[in-house]
Design a binder for these strands. Sequence first.
DNA 1: ACCTGAACACCGTTCAAGT
DNA 2: ACCTGAACACCGTTCAAGT
Lengths: 208, 208
Amino acid sequence: MSTSKAPGPKRTAKRPETYHHGDLERVLVATATAMLEREGADNLSLREVARRADVSHNAPYRHFADRDALLASVAAEGFRALARSMTDARRAARPLRGVGKAYVLFALERPRLFGLMFGPGLKRGAYPDLAAAMDEVFAYLAQPFTDTIESADARAAMIAAWSIVHGLAHLLIDGRLGPRLLAGTQDVGGLIDDVLDVAGRGLGPTRE
Amino acid sequence: MSTSKAPGPKRTAKRPETYHHGDLERVLVATATAMLEREGADNLSLREVARRADVSHNAPYRHFADRDALLASVAAEGFRALARSMTDARRAARPLRGVGKAYVLFALERPRLFGLMFGPGLKRGAYPDLAAAMDEVFAYLAQPFTDTIESADARAAMIAAWSIVHGLAHLLIDGRLGPRLLAGTQDVGGLIDDVLDVAGRGLGPTRE
DNA sequence: ACCTGAACACCGTTCAAGT
DNA sequence: ACCTGAACACCGTTCAAGT
């Protein structure tokens, strides 16, 4: 409406507004991201996303090949957000500890997004944008170990470090740590610190 | 048909055979378990399970309140199988190492079942049978630490130990360990050993 | 008791059509 | 180009009914 009588004959200018948004794509990703945390990935229907974005149930197919492609975009955004959190955390007094903690806290703050990002649902090969965003995070994780990544020991150390934050994140968000284990735990931050401390020193009681 | 003229008036005996199986419940769980590994939990439809069990799409509701209840039974069976693997592994030269390895190998052998068992889909509160099977596995995991479980350090050690096998399992089955990290890895068993070794000694390079 | 077929309100996806 | 409505083949779940 704003440009209904623009001067140029074919320069319809930007934002015709005759049809919906100029950036339905972004709106769909944002809507799906918001819905994901509330409903869970299983209950996230493409039709419902379209409904909340005020377009027909079919409009998303202009921007995404299918439901998985939309979820892949959501996951890619998630990886970019995680990368930002980790970047910020590098400024902490103990950078490596900070990054590990940021990883676990990200999972706790956005559990379903974390589940989508790392779950088996999306085949990264099919979505280059997602693969790129993932690789950035992975490079971040590997960075402290890259000097010696050629050594098998360093690789094992890197995998162990990643495993522990990844496993702790999963156990926490899936509620697998029962009340007995969490007894006396005031805040999660302290628990994460304790677990990372003991992991750094070596899993004492596990040695035989 | 076989017992249509049985002597006792109301003792219809076992296996009337007039209708399908006497144990449709077990058949449904077995069918669903088999389908789960092939199709994944998302693509597992109750109607398809019924079809493969040669009953109407509605028959499962005689034995399970809904789709989730059937999945809960599948998951409970999974926990019992995991408990058996871990029991066997206790006989290894290094019991704790053996149990941890058995945990990761179980995930690798039955990735979708593992995902269902530990994923966020099933609320354990709703399924007592599932909760019991889970608790047995958890007790197993906690056992080596129970002497000192009251100490915060021992709890942190137990959570760290569990986190590392759980995280490694997830990273492996979701294919998150890229080729660069897996370079030179002949068999997974060796990788698991290496990671558990370094975890036992302490995450060297991660100390700052 | 255990099973069935029809029905309801949803899906994801495709297609022919509208501006 | 971008959006729409109708249609197709599926779901999970419920219900009234059959033996």
